[in-house]
Design a binder for these strands. Structure first.
Length: 934
RNA sequence: GCUCAUAUGGCGGAAUUGGUAGACGCGAUAGACUCAAAAUCUAUUUUUCUUACGAAAGUCUCGGUUCAAGUCCGAGUAUGAGCACCA
């Protein structure tokens, strides 16, 4: 019927020859910048996942152009990185040659898919003309004291002799050789990203990122507001400081913990404990991160023999060391409040450290004149039957409860009450749990009660009882299973108590303070503020904000990255290269091996390493570390605005013209880190006056993955990889594009289905066949006019809201309606082709040309008339008591009375209301009628 | 463990502010065309009952709000992703 390969090739060439998609800096048209993440050109070629997001953004770009915007839709290559380096080492070629080949493949694939990139702006991060400016920007970081060198632990594979990224060392195992990864200290270049924590947080307000993207950023930054508290050490002059978000629980602190790496550890450890502590530290340092987390399923630690003084009550509390405290967060030391922190609770239980409750959960409503009482709730478990004892109280089922007499302990009260009610006396105490603060009204005494209630759990040892009649009406004992208790115990206090004793855990929620002197009676928030003021007044602490986000480790011990333009001079120390000497090129050799000691392969290339100090001229050595992959991608979107500038990294005029990236799309896996690095980079450039805005990216959305047909991630080993070239070959680029837009919700993962793809191909065939029905005519066919206007509106809206799948489906509906007609006009047909063009650009252009029109890509987007999208008549449902009993046809301007009348006349409706009282009739204009009868 | 997301026919998925659940596509079944197949066209396709008109149930489970709930509220379950002792 038609040769899609010929057609696609023809239009590909047309766009290329005419430079149809060239974006012009400074044009009068309104600028619109659409961006997709530039790919890493791997050896395996383009993935069908790339096709999804590139097509989606391409559709928007093409529509926006027709709507009169000057659209910038660029493409480039993020081509530094480990895989190319590995490949090159193995095959003794220069990575740039491997990369050049891969780029060629990728670009060819992109062209056959018909993406409307402005190829005149193409560049690779590995181009010296580009990485010159990445290096230049590093020097700006350095000059503004934002880059520094520091020793940090890195993942080290002893077999590959190479430093690994966290991703490559996932699970504590080297991804390449499978040997286990160890930690090694190395001096690394760092960027002071943590200085920007707050700015990166507040900057989100100036963006239009999707909520989940913002959330990813917020979580990564990990802001927490708390306090630092200073603890004196008994018998030492020194103090140590802890960070806590819960300084309100200070009265409940029963021990402190220092990280094994904390600087005071050995100093404060008592002589008899030295050996034990040293051994523990050694054990921790040899563990790699994986082992450490694995072992941490159970907490370990040792007592140092030293004691800290709790500043609020001068209590002596033991100091432990444990690797559950991280040296790298906060101050590397904590105060432990086992009653109100899960980790501390676990540790205290294991080592028998006291647990002091300082916060009570509240139940019920507080009243003004309350009488204070102490009460208990006794829960008895029968291990024989695995049931729990309940009694009847005011016609409801509860556990045994009771009020403590003066000086009576909770335990004695519970035993007394059990004896009174049931006569059981062979009981084993399992445990008391945290007290609950209960407010209620007592009918018998006409008083409001505030009861501090202690839940206690017993185990029944034998059925021995002094009570003869356990089943009498009054108490009505029942043993219930867990499930029955869930259903039958309604009282909140009893429910809570049961939860507490069943699964003893730290109480981490809000409540009322007890055992806390000046905090007693206050809630969490109030108490935190009071405590902070107290700490500040008494000079033993202060308010403090902490962030999880650390500084950016900017060094990589690799060959294939941007060389860091720094020189180590024996006289002057670290000296930056002169800017006019940039770029610092990578050496042009194809033979290099990683070094024995984990330095970059560059370290072996002496003629490259040796140089003169730019400051004093003395013999010096270059930095051999290179930059991380994230560096080049942190500013590439700016370079696209002015890609060939050899005077500046980007001209200010260009940035001011394009303003910002209007719409940035990428994978979910990059939404946290890449975006954070890029925003940090831009904010820094803004602060030194090099970019015009603090946030240069406006909207960021993330697409879902394309999974294999078995619902799993595509991978060679699983054999479920779909190669886009094969698909294009068999079905054509247009079919693939339509299919990937139709596959489902764009932000959601979707599984590949070749059957569904065939359906999309069939859709194209249908449109070709429609051409036989086309007759001359500049107006829409009367019967179709309404639907056409609606469809224009729908497609336009859907593309703007990323509802690509429903955009396609509405066009399918339009085609189905066209098919029902004997003939359609050229105008009808042309609007269909235009609306589908952004998604399937090749064949729509071809058919359009066959009608004798000028190219769609140079034309205008159709407009719709709001008036004409509104239906004159409408079928609406009539419900009786909420169930649909029939439909009626109404005119849109029908009054309520008329609609009501029509509804009542409907046959099936009549049947359902016959002989019944009509209570009311609800008429929602244009939507539904509901008749309520009795 | 924590955080987030998701849950709708045989399948992928639709469903504006709560207002006819299952659009559109796939698959399946039957029929037309054909020597035959493919392609195409027509019809049916949530389940159950009914010859039919129609009725009952139905959007993970339980409970609630409402004339009306896939949609809102509360409690849970399952799956997936990310973080992983962040004090």
């Amino acid at each position: 019927m038609y040769d899609f390969k010929q057609i696609e090739k023809k239009w590909r060439n047309y766009w290329k020859e005419n430079k149809t998609f060239k974006a012009i800096n400074g044009s009068d048209k309104e600028p619109y910048y659409i961006l997709v993440e530039f790919p890493y050109p791997s050896g395996s070629g383009l993935h069908v996942g790339h096709v999804r997001s590139y097509t989606a953004q391409d559709a928007i770009a093409r529509m926006k152009r027709m709507q009169g915007y000057n659209v910038l839709y660029p493409m480039g290559w993020d081509a530094f990185g480990a895989p190319a380096e590995q490949y090159a080492i193995k095959n003794h070629i220069h990575p740039k040659d491997a990369v050049r080949e891969n780029i060629k493949t990728f670009k060819g694939q992109m062209e056959t898919l018909g993406f409307s990139f402005d190829w005149d702006r193409e560049f690779s991060t590995t181009d010296p003309e580009y990485y010159k400016w990445t290096q230049w920007q590093f020097l700006q970081f350095y000059k503004h004291n934002m880059a520094y060198k520091e020793k940090v632990p890195v993942n080290w594979c002893p077999t590959c002799k190479s430093v690994l990224s966290n991703e490559d060392a996932a699970g504590g195992v080297c991804e390449r050789c499978g040997s286990s990864v160890v930690q090694k200290e190395k001096s690394q270049w760092m960027l002071r990203m943590s200085d920007y924590s707050e700015d990166l947080l507040t900057g989100l307000d100036d963006t239009n990122f999707a909520e989940r993207v913002k959330l990813g950023q917020i979580n990564w930054i990990g802001k927490s507001i708390g306090a630092e508290v200073n603890f004196k050490i008994e018998g030492h002059d020194k103090k140590f400081t802890v960070f806590t978000t819960r300084c309100d629980t200070l009265f409940g602190a029963t021990y402190c913990v220092l990280a094994p790496e904390h600087e005071y550890v050995l100093e404060i450890t008592t002589p008899e404990k030295q050996e034990e502590v040293k051994e523990y530290i050694k054990k921790c340092s040899t563990k790699n991160e994986m082992e450490r987390t694995e072992l941490n399923k159970e907490k370990t630690g040792v007592f140092t023999g030293a004691y800290a003084i709790n500043p609020v009550n001068n209590d002596k509390i033991p100091i432990y060391i444990s690797d559950y405290v991280l040296a790298s967060y906060g101050t590397g030391a904590i105060m432990a409040v086992p009653a109100h922190d899960d980790r501390d609770y676990e540790f205290a239980k294991k080592y028998g450290i006291p647990i002091i409750q300082v916060l009570e959960e509240e139940i019920g409503k507080k009243e003004a004149n309350e009488e204070k009482q102490k009460e208990i709730i006794a829960i008895i478990h029968n291990p024989e039957t695995d049931k729990y004892l309940t009694i009847k109280k005011n016609d409801k089922r509860t556990f045994i409860d009771g009020t403590r007499k003066d000086d009576e302990s909770a335990l004695n009260c519970a035993l007394r009450k059990i004896q009174e009610k049931t006569g059981y006396n062979d009981l084993k105490l399992i445990g008391e749990d945290f007290k609950i603060n209960n407010h209620y009204y007592d009918k018998d005494t006409d008083k409001y009660i505030n009861a501090e209630t202690t839940p206690i759990l017993f185990e029944l040892q034998s059925e021995r009882t002094t009570n003869k009649d356990l089943n009498n009406e009054e108490i009505s004992i029942k043993w219930l299973t867990l499930k029955e208790i869930e259903k039958e115990i309604k009282d909140e206090l009893h429910k809570k108590s049961f939860e507490y004793v069943l699964d003893p855990a730290a109480m981490t929620g809000d409540g009322t303070h007890i055992n806390s002197e000046f905090l007693n009676g206050k809630n969490k928030e109030d108490a935190i503020n009071t405590m902070i003021s107290w700490l500040e007044e008494n000079n033993c602490g202060k308010k403090k904000v902490n962030y999880k986000m650390r500084d950016w480790i900017f060094s990589r011990q690799r060959f294939w990255g941007e060389p860091i333009p720094m020189i180590d001079c024996p006289k002057c120390g670290w000296v930056p290269m002169n800017e006019e000497d940039l770029p610092l090129l990578l050496p042009d050799i194809a033979e290099y091996e990683p070094t024995e000691n984990g330095e970059s392969p560059l370290a072996n290339i002496t003629e490259w390493v040796n140089c003169k100090c730019p400051k004093c001229g003395h013999d010096a050595k270059r930095e051999t570390d290179t930059m991380p992959n994230w560096a080049g991608s942190s500013w590439y979107f700016l370079r696209f605005m002015d890609p060939h500038n050899d005077k500046e990294f980007v001209g200010m005029d260009a940035m001011k013209y394009w303003n910002r990236v209007d719409w940035y799309n990428g994978g979910m896996e990059h939404t946290a880190r890449h975006l954070l690095y890029a925003r940090f980079w831009v904010q820094f450039l803004y602060n030194i006056g090099l970019v015009p805005k603090k946030e240069m990216i406006w909207t960021r959305v993330s697409h879902g993955m394309i999974l294999g047909s078995n619902g799993e991630k595509m991978s060679k080993s699983k054999g479920n990889v779909v190669n886009p070239d094969d698909v294009v070959n068999e079905f054509g680029a247009d079919a693939l594009r339509i299919y990937e837009m139709f596959i489902g919700d764009y932000t959601q993962d979707a599984s590949w289905s070749t059957d569904s793809l065939r359906g999309c191909k069939r859709f194209i065939d249908k449109i070709f066949r429609l051409k036989d029905k086309v007759i001359e005519g500049d107006n829409y066919t009367k019967e179709l006019e309404n639907l056409i206007h609606k469809t224009i509106k729908k497609v336009e809206n859907d593309l703007q809201t990323m509802s690509y799948n429903t955009a396609v489906s509405s066009l399918m509906i339009l085609v189905n309606n066209f098919e029902e007609q004997k003939e359609i006009t050229k105008a009808d047909y042309k609007v269909l082709l235009t609306l589908l063009n952004p998604i399937a650009p090749h064949f729509t252009e071809e058919l359009n040309e066959q009608l004798g029109f000028s190219p769609i890509c140079e034309g205008k987007w159709p407009t719709y008339d709001e008036e004409k999208t509104i239906d004159k008549t409408k079928d609406i449902a009539v419900q009786v008591n909420g169930k649909v009993r029939g439909t009626i046809t109404i005119n849109v301007d029908d009054e309520e009375d008329i609609i009501k009348e029509k509804a009542m006349q409907e046959d099936n409706v009549k049947r359902h209301i016959e002989g019944k009282d009509i209570i009311k009739v609800i008429v929602i204009k244009g939507k539904i009628v509901n008749i309520v009868v009795k």
